[in-house]
Design a protein around this nucleic acid. Sequence first.
RNA 1: GGAGGGGUGUCCGAGAGGUCGAAGGUGACAGACUCGAAAUCUGUUGUGGGGCAACUCACCCAGGGUUCGAAUCCCUGCCCCUCCGCCA
Length: 426
Amino acid sequence: MLDIKYIRDNLDQVEAALATRGSEISLEGFRELDKRRRSLLTESENLKALKNSVSEEISRVKDKSTVKDKIAEMKDVSVRIKTLDDELKVVEEEFAAILMTLPNLPHPTAPIGRSEADNMVVRKWGTLPEMNFEPKSHWDIGESLGILDFERAAKITGARFCLYKGAGARLERALINFMLELHTNEHGYVEVLPPFMVNRASMTGTGQLPKFEEDLFRLADPDFLLIPTAEVPVTNIHRDEILKKSDLPICYAAYTPCFRREAGSYGKDTRGLIRQHQFNKVELVRFVHPEKSQAELENLTGHAEKVLQLLELPYRVLNLCTGDIGFSSCKTFDLEVWLPGQGQYREISSCSSFADFQARRASIRYREEEKSKPEFVHTLNGSGLAVGRTVVAILENYQQADGSVVIPSVLRPYMGGLERIEKVPA
RNA sequence: GGAGGGGUGUCCGAGAGGUCGAAGGUGACAGACUCGAAAUCUGUUGUGGGGCAACUCACCCAGGGUUCGAAUCCCUGCCCCUCCGCCA
């Protein structure tokens, strides 16, 4: 959520900044409702002040029969207040509806552009593997090794699910453990294991609601939603809290499965693990002092990169352009890993700074001084990494001519020393 | 799922239709005393909205209702605790 006062005072600049995201957003409705809201508020509050003072007078009188006319008058005032408040409620709901659907303002260092074609390559790491054979896709590798079974997953549930088996299941688990150990031991994160379903307030706090409900899986009875990313439960850990300045930065690493409807992506990445309704992810979340958020974004991105470096997977870092950054984000670095089977780089991590956008929605604050007014923290998060896509990258980059896949050396301790996945005779 | 008991300020805890934004204690901060500290004493100490300001409005889990007036009464929901059942 954006700062109401800031929008009010900088209407044109805000409109211009939002326009760089690609869709024209008029703030005329905002301006109108804001005016209306404030005038109703003043009117109602003046009547309330009157009611309060007269009611106090009444309370001091012993013989109520002498103030009959005042009581009657206040009864009338109460009715008028109620009418005004009802009207105000409608206006505020409309106002909030606008406010909650305005995306964050892009950071000045986010390149201006319309689509992913305008994203800026910041750096590249690693060398692309040289193969003297035609690299296979991970689904072919996984199926022929008997470690990924998409057909049976479709039987069990439906499209965009996968059944991992044997060394495949173990590889997934090894990666989760490896990533969590790295971030907790080397990068200073506290491990958390949050609920995988959340309420609407949490989804609203991080920005998934009200705008993106169609991307979420919803439970029928309690009105809970399956998390599309650990960002939601983990950022909401501190919703409606005032944090101690000395506790910042607060850093959490969380493994969770993620559930996404993938509405609107029909026909995209229909094969393989790239786009699934359920996938595992290790997520990094940081609550930081507002002045530090830019530097913290570099830190966070570095932590995600470290995973790829240790796995020796070649990747590049993109500074996403204004047209491509997410709704709540003001700046995002995407990590894209090289996939020989596809002959292209694909997103494996997205590291974002939200500035105070989520903190304002979720009311997450700190005090600069012991006695000073609470101020909003800045929140950041990034995948460290998407586990399923990491499996994809390992299968495709470490594939051998004979169809086997070598396990990256840092993972072997997590795989019981296994060095290579080979076909198990059926 | 059944039966009870609760949700008040940093925390504990009073309150029970009017003078309550809320007693008392505790914690924190400032000052006095002290060479310094402890103890003691004094003062300050919630959040959000509107207003240039004086000031004002709202908030005692949340949302409705009754009333001139509600933390206090009524309804609904959420959460916590105890017992029974069920269950990993």
